[in-house]
């Protein structure tokens, strides 16, 4: 009798173990699938404010590098985070598009920063033509102007 009871208990314990293992594997699989979906389909790039710039340079020097040797400048800056200091030339506001801030250069073109998000009216009012701005963003290349995406305005001080 004792032997049969012990065997029954063991069988129940084994079944519970199996269920626990199954639940554990299912949970691990669900987490793995969730992580894969998040990583590949849902995760977006971190906000520009959280990123660090690899270069900080003034707009004249930055533009001059592209004018002098586009390939070398592409190699150095494209797809990298940069911070550019320069004088505000103009602001472009097009319907359905993010605002674009243009900084002056001594060359043929400008540095065009497409902002990461729309500017509030307060931020827009603070922007004065010819004032000095420090802007961080991702350099995407040169088309007579140098284009910077996902940009944010930083405090120059």
């Amino acid at each position: 009798m004792l032997g049969r009871g012990w065997r029954k208990r063991k069988l129940i314990e084994l079944n519970i173990m199996k269920r626990k293992t199954f639940v554990l594997i299912a949970a691990v699989l669900a987490i793995a699938v969730g992580l894969y979906v998040w990583q590949n389909f849902l995760k977006t790039a971190p906000a520009m404010r959280k990123l660090e710039a690899e270069y900080r340079v003034n707009s004249n020097e930055f533009y001059a590098e592209f004018e002098e040797n586009e390939d070398a400048a592409n190699e150095k800056y494209v797809n990298r985070i940069v911070e550019i200091i320069g004088e505000l030339e103009s602001i472009e506001m097009n319907e359905g598009s993010k605002p674009v801030i243009n900084l002056k250069t001594e060359g043929f073109g400008m540095i065009k920063f497409t902002m990461e998000s729309n500017l509030s009216s307060g931020e827009l009012n603070e922007l004065e033509l010819n004032s000095t701005l420090l802007i961080r963003g991702e350099c995407i290349g040169y088309l007579l102007d140098v284009l910077i995406e996902r940009s944010i305005i930083l405090d120059p001080s």
Binding site: E92, N94, G96, S97, K98, V100, K112, T114, E138, I140, G141, L143, L144, D145, L147, E149
Partner: peptide
């Protein structure tokens, strides 16, 4: 998607046209 930052040059005497777009400029 759209971009307002395409570069284009047209030569009206030769009838030639060139357009350059940076793909990452598409919003």
């Amino acid at each position: 998607a759209h971009t307002n930052k395409a570069l284009s040059i047209i030569d009206i005497k030769k009838g030639e046209v060139a357009v350059d777009i940076l793909i990452k400029s598409f919003e």
